[in-house]
Design a protein around this nucleic acid. Structure first.
Length: 425
RNA sequence: GGAGGCGUGGCAGAGUGGUUGAAUGCGGCGGUCUUGAAAACCGUUAGGCAUCGUAAGGUGCCUCGAGGGUUCAAAUCCUUCCGCCUCCGCCA
């Protein structure tokens, strides 16, 4: 969330951000609530100060063994007034924070303003595959090679679940290991293996709650949620902690399954691996100093690109426009892999800088020593990106590496993970 | 799931109703001494919010796992929740 004081002092900035995001929110209610809250707060603090003074008097009187009855009874009156006023304050606080929680982050000045089609293609890599035969879709390929069993997956769980089988399952496992190795050995990330179920505080810390509760799988008996991305557990590693400046940036990478209800997206991309309720993903998360977070974002994107380059998958990097930016992000790049048969660019990674938006919610700070030797605590900037999502990457591999004979060539970097195997047939 | 114990500042650890935001030790920071360092000694060392001030800073309020309650008054008593530890049960 944004800092209330920042909103108070930069109303136009926040209102522009809301406009740029095409948000219908207005700030009038927030401002009037904020004003009444501060008024009532001053009142309460005055009453409490009175109460504390009376308390000191009582203590002094009792020490001297003098009667304190009259002071005690006057304090009773004050205490009652405080109780009443506090109830009003609590109500205002609740209303205020419910609004604060749904105000989106402010887009960075470099983000293209406008509708999703204002997105900028920053660069692209590789060439779309060309075939001297009619390429098949990943669904046909997977079924012919018997590496994904869509029907039995729906029998076991429901539609849009995936059952990888045989070499399909092995390919999945190889991809996970390859990506984790790349990020840990070459890019310097620390590997973690997080829980897949997280509590409400964690989901709120990264911004999934309260806005998107309906999109999450939830265990209501335990108030736990299945993670939609490893971003949630990885970012919450440092919730309510103060980090040391010298340790920043801290970079984590981790594998997790990701669970998404995809409520409201029925009928969209319902076939194959495009949009599924459970998929695998390698995630990268960074905790950075504010002054270097945008530099870290560029590196993060490069680290994700490295995966696609190593796999030999043609892709492009897209800077999202303000109206496409997710709730908590200030800036976001999508990596889109080209899939030969569908002829579409598929989003396989999304790399964002959240600046202090998540850190403020999740209360993640760091201690800084200034040039003058002063110590201060500030919010860190949090970043994350997929490095990369597997399901759609598998689409790209199957469709781009398919051969005339129906087999699929295995990208060279994956072969060591598959006992040197060169193709799936 | 059952029984018991615990949760205090960066850490360790006092404090069981009234100047306790909190003793003491360690650690950290600054200084003295030293060629430099160590040791020793001296000093210092939580965060948040509101308010006044151009500022430096002042004033006030809140915070002892989280919430609720008792009381004139809660770190201290009661209660719910969360977390950790020990024992038993179950279990990959």
């Amino acid at each position: 969330m944004l800092d209330l004081r920042f909103i108070r002092e930069n109303r136009e900035v926040v209102e522009k951000a809301l406009r740029d995001r095409a948000s219908k929110l207005t700030l009038d209610e927030l401002f009037s609530l904020d004003e009444s809250r501060r008024k009532i707060l001053v009142e309460i603090e005055g009453l409490r100060a009175e109460k504390n003074k009376a308390n000191d008097q009582i203590t002094a009187l009792l020490k001297e063994k003098k009667p304190a009855v009259s002071v005690i009874s006057s304090m009773k009156v004050i205490a009652e007034r405080i109780d009443k006023t506090e109830a009003g304050l609590r109500a205002l606080d609740d209303q205020l924070s419910s609004i604060l929680f749904i105000i989106p982050n402010i887009p960075h000045s470099s983000v293209p303003v406008g509708e999703p089609d204002k997105a900028k293609i920053v660069r692209s890599w590789g060439k779309p595959q060309e075939f001297d035969f009619k390429p098949l879709s990943h669904i046909d390929i997977a079924q012919r090679l018997d590496i994904i069993d869509f029907n039995r997956a729906s029998k076991i769980s429901g539609s849009n679940f995936i059952l990888y089988k045989g070499q399909g399952a092995q390919l999945e496992r190889a991809l996970i290991n390859f990506m984790l190795d790349l990020h840990t050995k070459k890019h310097g990330y620390t590997e973690v293996f997080p829980p897949f179920l997280v509590n409400r505080a964690s989901m709120t810390g990264t911004g999934q709650l309260p806005k998107m509760e309906d999109d999450m799988y939830k265990l209501k008996d335990d108030d736990l949620f299945l993670i939609p991305t490893a971003e949630v557990p990885l970012t919450n590693i440092y919730r309510d902690e103060i980090l040391e400046e010298k340790n920043l940036p801290i970079c984590f990478t981790g594998y997790s399954a990701c669970f998404r209800r995809e409520a409201g997206s029925y009928g969209k991309d319902t076939k194959g691996l495009m949009r599924v309720h459970q998929f695998n993903k390698i995630e990268m998360v960074k905790f950075a100093k504010p002054e270097s977070s945008y530099e870290e974002l560029e590196k993060l994107v490069n680290d994700a690109e490295d995966v696609l380059q190593a796999l030999g998958i043609c892709y492009r990097v897209v800077a999202l426009a303000t109206q496409d930016l997710s709730f908590a992000a200030s800036k976001c790049y999508d990596l889109e892999a080209f899939a030969a048969c569908v002829g579409k660019w598929l989003e396989v990674s999304s790399c964002s800088n959240f600046e202090s938006f998540q850190a403020r919610r999740a209360n993640i700070k760091f201690k800084r020593t200034t040039a003058e030797g002063r110590r201060s605590t500030e919010y860190v900037h949090t970043l994350n990106g997929s490095g990369v999502a597997l399901a759609r990457t598998v689409i790209a591999i199957l469709e781009n590496y398919q051969q005339k004979d129906g087999s699929v060539l295995i990208p060279e970097v994956l072969r060591p993970y598959l006992n040197g195997q060169e193709k799936i047939s």
